[in-house]
């Protein structure tokens, strides 16, 4: 068998064509394809991220999330004191400590309806919040604390529930740290869990925390800000 005429004739094509074919690599084309692949992936990621952000933003609005600004970067004390140390008299401090002791005593009983206990500086009363403010429950509390003058009132969330939320947050503290949750605590006075986030626009943190808290309004978000409230409003 002889090689076809054309197969032999191809052996006589111009030298530069042969050399080019040895060296040729369609790098540009390859890069172009890669570029478009990456561009498509990046575009898709941006669309997904925008979609998620939009959803989370809408979530924050529809769920009426409460966000406060804390200029001094200070949380309420667990015993409920909102005053500076200079304003507190020894009597007030004593009553505050007493309220704190009562709180610690009651939570040992693990009542589902017990909310909070704190000393109210304005009315000079030890306040005890119950989610079911009934005579029977009040009687149970009085049996525990003895003959101490207290004022009962109906509160929204039980301490048991707030503690449960706190424990949930605690068990996921690494995840929360990554998504921008700075810290969290139970505010006994305000009867909710305080969650400090990096920015009011951190919708992801708001969403995750609120989901962990079963979306029943027991969480209040705080944004640490260096600016006074008036300046913030101006900037908005």
């Amino acid at each position: 068998m002889k090689a076809p005429k054309l197969a032999l004739a191809v052996g006589y094509i111009d030298d530069d064509l042969v050399s080019d074919a040895v060296d040729y690599l369609p790098v540009q084309r390859k890069n172009k394809i890669r570029y478009w692949k990456y561009a498509t992936v990046v575009a898709a990621c941006i669309v997904v991220a925008l979609g998620i952000n939009g959803y989370l933003k809408k979530y924050a609005i529809t769920n009426d999330i409460h966000i406060e600004y804390d200029v001094n970067e200070q949380f309420d004390n667990a015993d409920g004191s909102m005053l500076s140390h200079d304003d507190v008299t020894p009597e007030m401090a004593e009553k505050g400590a007493k309220a704190n002791n009562i709180h610690n005593l009651i939570i040992g009983y693990n009542f589902e309806w017990y909310g909070n206990c704190y000393y109210d500086y304005d009315s000079d009363l030890i306040m005890i919040g119950l989610t079911e403010n009934t005579e029977i429950n009040q009687k149970k509390i009085v049996e525990i604390i003895g003959d101490i003058a207290v004022q009962f009132f109906e509160c929204e969330h039980s301490y048991h529930k707030l503690e449960k939320i706190y424990n949930k947050l605690e068990s996921r503290q690494f995840l929360l740290m990554i998504i921008g949750v700075k810290r969290y605590n139970i505010s006994v006075v305000n009867n909710y869990v305080n969650v400090c986030i990096t920015s009011e626009k951190n919708h992801l943190a708001i969403y995750v925390v609120n989901k962990l808290a079963d979306e029943d309004g027991a969480v209040s978000f705080k944004v640490l800000s260096d600016q006074p409230a008036a300046d913030r409003e101006e900037n908005k």
């Binding site: 054309l6 032999l8 004739a9 191809v10 006589y12 094509i13 111009d14």
Partner: peptide, 15 residues
């Protein structure tokens, strides 16, 4: 079968 000149000619056309 053709001679080398013809192959060269076809090679040129293919080029």
């Amino acid at each position: 079968i053709c001679d080398e000149t013809e192959y060269k000619n076809i090679g040129k056309i293919i080029s």
